[in-house]
Computed example of a mutant assay.
Amino acid sequence: MVERVKATDEALALINKLKTIHGPLMFHQSGGCCDGSSPMCYPRDEFRIGESDVLLGELGDTPFYMSKDQYEYWKHTQLIIDVVDGRGGMFSLEGPEGKRFLTRSRVFTEVERKELQLGG
């Protein structure tokens, strides 16, 4: 099955490090405002997910959400969560590590789009 969101090995390593510090985590793809369009990492029980959020998948065992409105713009792309040096979103957990999560993307192929449609 085609994944709507996946992570690089470097991102998975940072996620695992953050889990040892903070416990279970979750991501929400920011839509702008204060933190640009960064993937934001939070302790799982400290961010409320609502009916206006879409679960895109999991990075390891860490769920990744995006708002429905934003999903309409991104639904044709696969999100690839990566890590780079520097400061990210001020509310995201990776900031003190001197790293930041970064969303890269690529457009799904026609075959992948059909597979996603069949899979719901």
Rank of each mutant, 00 (worst) to 15 (best):
G31N: 10
M40S: 06
L116E: 01
M1N: 14
P63Q: 09
N16M: 11
K99M: 10
F108H: 03
E3H: 11
L56T: 01
Q70E: 11
A11W: 00
S67D: 14
V5S: 02
R113G: 00
K6N: 11
W74T: 05
V2A: 06
C33D: 14
L14E: 02
F108T: 00
G50A: 10
R106A: 08
I21D: 14
S30K: 03
R44L: 14
L14C: 03
G60K: 11
F91T: 14
V2Q: 03
D61R: 09
W74E: 07
L93G: 00
I80D: 04
D53R: 05
D85R: 11
V54Y: 06
L118C: 09
L116W: 01
T20E: 15
D53S: 11
R100Q: 14
K99H: 10
V2T: 11
E3G: 06
E94G: 02
L14A: 03
E72L: 12
F27W: 05
Y42A: 05
T20I: 10
F108P: 01
E51W: 13
K99F: 06
G32R: 08
Y42E: 07
D53L: 06
V54R: 05
C41M: 06
D9Q: 15
K19M: 09
F27Y: 07
L56G: 00
V54L: 11
T109H: 05
S30P: 05
T103F: 10
K75P: 02
F27Q: 02
R44N: 13
C34Y: 12
L18Q: 01
S105G: 13
N16L: 11
D9V: 12
G57F: 03
V84E: 15
V111H: 13
L79E: 04
L116G: 00
H76P: 07
V111W: 09
E10K: 13
T109I: 07
T8S: 14
L25E: 02
S37A: 11
E97F: 08
R113S: 02
D45P: 04
P24Y: 12
V54T: 09
Q70M: 12
E112Y: 01
V107C: 09
D85S: 13
V54D: 03
E110M: 07
G31E: 14
E97V: 05
A11N: 04
D85Q: 11
R4N: 05
S67H: 12
S92V: 04
F101W: 05
D45Q: 09
D69P: 07
L116K: 00
M1W: 08
D45R: 06
P43E: 15
V2Y: 01
V54M: 12
Q78P: 04
G95E: 10
D85W: 08
L25G: 00
Y42C: 06
E3T: 10
K68Y: 09
N16K: 15
R4V: 02
V54H: 05
G120M: 05
Q29K: 12
L56I: 06
S38H: 06
L12R: 13
D53H: 13
Q70T: 07
V5T: 04
L79S: 07
Y73A: 13
L102W: 12
K17I: 08
I21E: 15
G119S: 15
K17P: 03
N16A: 15
G120A: 08
K75M: 11
G95P: 02
H28E: 10
E3M: 12
D82G: 06
K19H: 10
F47N: 04
G88Q: 01
D45L: 07
L59C: 09
C41N: 03
G32K: 08
L79R: 03
R44M: 13
G88H: 00
